[in-house]
Design a protein around this nucleic acid. Structure first.
Length: 495
RNA sequence: GGCGGCUUCGCCAAGUGGUAAGGCAACUGAUUGCAAAUCAGUCAUCGGCGGUUCGACUCCGCCAGCCGCCUCCA
């Protein structure tokens, strides 16, 4: 019996048991990105956190409807388009493609649907129209604003009170507004800006309304989980709730999940500060699984600080898993089975069962992937201990069964976290075509043969030279009793 | 100024009212021609001060430091 899933709900600030509105199904909406530039590690953090949550829910048997939006029209996109003298959709579509290629490499599973704001203008106009009709929103000079005093629960997510917002507003008051905290549902087009026709003139949607419109379009007026970065909690998510609930009269998202922000050099990774690490650049020197492992190494809700060498350390950790599978493959294929075994089956099956139990215990407890990983490292250790013995004396038929079972547990649980180690689909850094790979393989085997001859002739300086030279081009040799193996490492990483 | 959060071994980072997972690094030993990998072992009393409690790192209060949001932001 697996533990019930509990999660920390930002809305109630409490730990709650996850009880989907429709048994067996989870409807989940996660704020994607405004596509005006490349993705950075912070975007990856959010995407990977919610991907991990989604994968775990699916692993637990839920059918997950997973919606991630693209904000494909906004000031920054328009600014870029104007700078590049292209249509704004050219810009947004380019960065959407870019987003997919980065996220695919990080093994972020594709959402059920990726709605774009520009393709849901009618839905938004209907919502805005309704709010205006009921005087919850009001038009001003071609814009439309939401009157925050007309929604009693305004501030319930972020713990703010309307009065305080009015008093402490940092922005200069726009005198056209009923109060400074009111936010735009619709923005009238200024000179030459693209726009859509509306009852209030040509314009484009405000930022928040798209999520309200698209979430209800695809998941219903009330759905289970809404996720996003903690920095979106206010005002974005607060405003989503206000619009949606004022419009529909029913609760919007039932559970709100927020991932902690990634800090780099002491402050939030953000384009405006300029301390961003682009995913594309990181992928040049790091295994995508290492990046994923790093991002899952702390609880999703905690802010995470990126330090120099963080990804290198994650890469070393990942190798621990990689080595287990390499070693097992060698062990199981090299030696013919014998009657008597060096491994007692129960030792490994117990270790595997313990790791799996701990995995579920941690993951059920607000998706504690970091804790779950700890258990997987322990299982890796148990496997190594057993394999060390098995290299001296055949594990025997029962031992082989136990070994295989523990390996398959390890690889499938890593898979639930989206880590491809041991699944046969891991992406070695510098992956190349199949033809290249087999050519490299043949060449390296030749070099290993040459080195073996040198070693047998006790010409160790020559043997070392071969090893060093291969290391310089990213081929690392490992001598084992059963022979020499090699692995490709990424070219030396700088950050 | 308002709201929220954080402070655990050299670094990253889980966690619990009953004396602290894991990874990286380091140290000792085994193994190795030497390495690498691996194994065995070593390596923290949880920011400070009070309080509640039989007992707190975990609960409460105060203090200090750091961070996020309040403007676009994963």
């Amino acid at each position: 019996m697996l533990p019930a899933i509990e999660l920390e709900n930002s809305l109630t600030r409490k730990r709650e048991r996850l009880e989907p509105a429709v048994p067996g199904r989870i409807s989940m909406y996660v704020c994607g990105m405004t596509v005006y530039d490349d993705c950075h590690l912070g975007h990856a953090m959010s995407a990977v956190c919610f991907d991990m949550i989604r994968r775990y829910l699916e692993h637990r048997g839920f059918l997950v409807d997973y919606v991630v939006n693209f904000t494909d029209v906004d000031d920054k996109i328009l600014a870029r388009a104007s700078r590049e003298e292209v249509d704004f959709l050219t810009v947004s579509e380019r960065f959407i493609d870019n987003y997919f290629s980065d996220m695919d490499r990080l093994n972020v599973k594709r959402a059920t649907i990726y709605p774009r704001a520009t393709r849901h203008i009618p839905e938004m106009l209907r919502m805005i129209g309704d709010l205006v009709d009921r005087d919850i929103a009001y038009p001003v000079d071609g814009d439309v604003y939401f009157d925050v005093t007309r929604f009693d629960d305004y501030g319930k997510l972020s713990g703010r009170k309307v009065e305080e917002l009015l008093a402490g507003a940092r922005i200069e008051a726009d005198t056209r507004l009923r109060q400074p905290a009111d936010f735009a549902l619709w923005k009238g087009a200024k000179d030459g800006e693209p726009g859509w026709e509306s009852p209030w003139g040509t314009g484009r949607p405000g930022w928040h309304i798209e999520c309200s419109a698209m979430a209800s379009r695809y998941l219903g007026q009330t759905f289970d989980i809404h996720g996003g970065g903690l920095d979106l909690l206010f005002p974005h998510h607060e405003n989503e709730i206000a619009q949606s609930e004022a419009h529909a009269g029913v609760p919007f998202a039932r559970y709100w999940l927020h991932n902690g922000i990634l800090n780099f050099s002491g402050s939030k990774m953000s384009k405006s500060i300029g301390n961003v690490l682009g995913i594309k650049r990181l992928l040049k020197t790091h295994d995508p699984d290492a990046i994923r492992l790093y991002l899952l190494g702390s609880h999703y809700r905690q802010p995470q600080s990126y330090e120099d060498g963080s990804l290198e350390r994650a890469g070393k950790s990942l190798e621990r898993f990689v080595n287990v599978f390499d070693r097992a493959r060698r062990l199981l294929q090299d030696s013919p089975p014998e009657e008597r075994g060096s491994i007692t089956e129960s030792a490994l099956t117990d270790a595997a069962a313990a790791a799996e139990a701990r995995f579920h215990q941690c993951m059920s407890d607000d998706f504690n992937a970091a804790g779950a990983l700890g258990g997987l490292f322990e299982l890796a250790s148990h496997l190594n201990t057993a394999m060390q013995a098995a290299e001296k004396e055949d594990p025997g038929p029962e031992g082989r069964a136990g070994l295989n079972q523990a390996l398959s547990t390890l690889s499938s649980l890593l898979g639930v976290l989206g880590l491809r180690v041991g699944s046969g689909e891991s992406q070695a850094a510098g992956a190349s075509s199949e033809a290249d790979t087999s050519l490299i393989s043949a060449l390296v085997d030749q070099m290993i043969q040459m080195r073996l001859q040198a070693r047998q002739a006790k010409d160790f300086s020559r043997a070392d030279e071969i090893r060093d030279r291969l290391a310089r081009v990213g081929i690392e040799l490992k001598d084992a009793p059963s022979g020499t193996t090699w692995t490709r490492r990424p070219p030396s990483a700088q950050d």
